[in-house]
Design a protein around this nucleic acid. Structure first.
Lengths: 227, 227
DNA sequence: GAGTGGTCTAGACCACGTT
DNA sequence: ACGTGGTCTAGACCACTCT
């Protein structure tokens, strides 16, 4: 039995009611006997199920079926270009505004920036088959990324530039809703007062705040996943 | 070296620029030499980094640092009661309406229900310290869960009842935004026209559609995570 | 064909938490 | 003290995919 077969079989026993929520499962060694597999194989199956929130494992106490499955949803956060192209639509990018300025107070608080820090403020639009898809409001900390000042971002969006420039970062992401004001409605080709799905993202690299971005999606956009 | 140490060291090499995006890493056997570990240990470290979207692995070609890290965000989807209590607020639940009816067409399409299927339609409110926190619009397929008809849901919300009744399910979840109409604004204690964060969830058990729910959160609510 | 990752085995020691 | 899961080792065979 492969570890995948074991995972499937354990899930089957749980969904069939043979192992109800809270049930104490056999120990790894007992399952090794039953499945005729090595302990490492059984262990991998159970460990992955625990990672996925189905099982609860404790040394000495054993492995139990979770009562209220710790439901977790995993979302892919793709580049906007790839998301649009993945739907078979043509991608177009446009730079709306590019502004060098001191970080406003709300941004300094948000990104934990010191006083008098210069930031690059970019406003961009992303289109799918010519229709407004996403409005991007981006702030880049020039103290962390001075070379951003030399890029003009007319051809390539800041997101794509960033992922090629910074290899890895800590990220905080938040989802919410926002009402389209007159300006945003004009960009997004919707009516004023429409509710738009919005994500906010702060990125750090090596402990240093790098960028903050607000993305507003077209009206009716839904971010979905299965698990 | 433990697999965690190896993960850390590989991440350090990536963030330090020693292994830039797209870089071809040493093979597992070479890393075994370098770290003085068994191949299974190195394999687990690299496999987990690939699962997390940092590395890209292919047989024969080897392991590379992802160019555009397929960033994934993991969100916990807690029970509303636990989310509110976890913030140190008092939880209160109220059943607003309970209605037995035939599934409307949009719902039949959404849940892949046959014609003439009876559903239980529930409207509920969840309060945090007395303030409206979440509006729940729930539909339960009585063909899959006939015992739902015997529960009155005045004391316990349908979500808590469901997780105790069904051990495991397939779930499709979507995030979006919705404008508060007059009725919803009254429930949520906000002004009409406010943008509210909304999640929709469809649940299947054993291939059978069980329930569909729309959750509207208080104005300004943000669902956040770090990764 | 050959190199790489994917997986499995049998055995071992350790860490944690309950008793 | 003892039972359980957590992890590591050394070796093996297989599957994919590039040339």
């Amino acid at each position: 039995m492969s570890y995948k077969d074991i995972k499937e079989d354990v899930l089957r026993r749980i969904t069939s009611g043979q192992w109800p929520p809270g049930h104490l499962m056999p120990s790894e060694l007992e399952l090794c006997d039953e499945y005729g597999s090595a302990r490492a194989t059984v262990n991998r199956a159970l460990r992955e199920l625990a990672d996925e929130g189905v099982l609860d494992r404790k040394r000495k106490s054993g492995t139990r079926v979770r009562r209220a499955p710790l439901r977790q949803a995993r979302f892919d956060i793709p580049l906007t270009r790839l998301e649009i192209e993945g739907r078979g639509a043509a991608y177009r990018y446009a730079l709306v505004a590019r502004d060098l300025c001191l970080a406003p107070d709300w941004l300094r608080a948000r990104m934990a920036l010191g006083a008098g820090v210069k930031v690059l403020h970019l406003t961009c639009m992303h289109y799918a088959d010519g229709a407004p898809f996403q409005h991007e409001d981006r702030w880049i900390n020039l103290a962390a990324l001075p070379q951003a000042e030399d890029s003009d971002f007319t051809e390539t969006g800041p997101n794509e530039w960033l992922v090629e420039t910074i290899p890895f970062s800590d990220v905080e992401i938040g989802f919410g809703a926002v009402v389209a004001d007159a300006a945003l409605a004009e960009f997004m080709g919707c009516t004023t007062g429409e509710a738009l799905f919005q994500t906010e993202r702060s990125t750090w690299f090596d402990g240093q705040p790098v960028t903050f971005v607000r993305l507003c999606f077209q009206a009716g956009y839904r971010m979905t996943t299965r698990y």
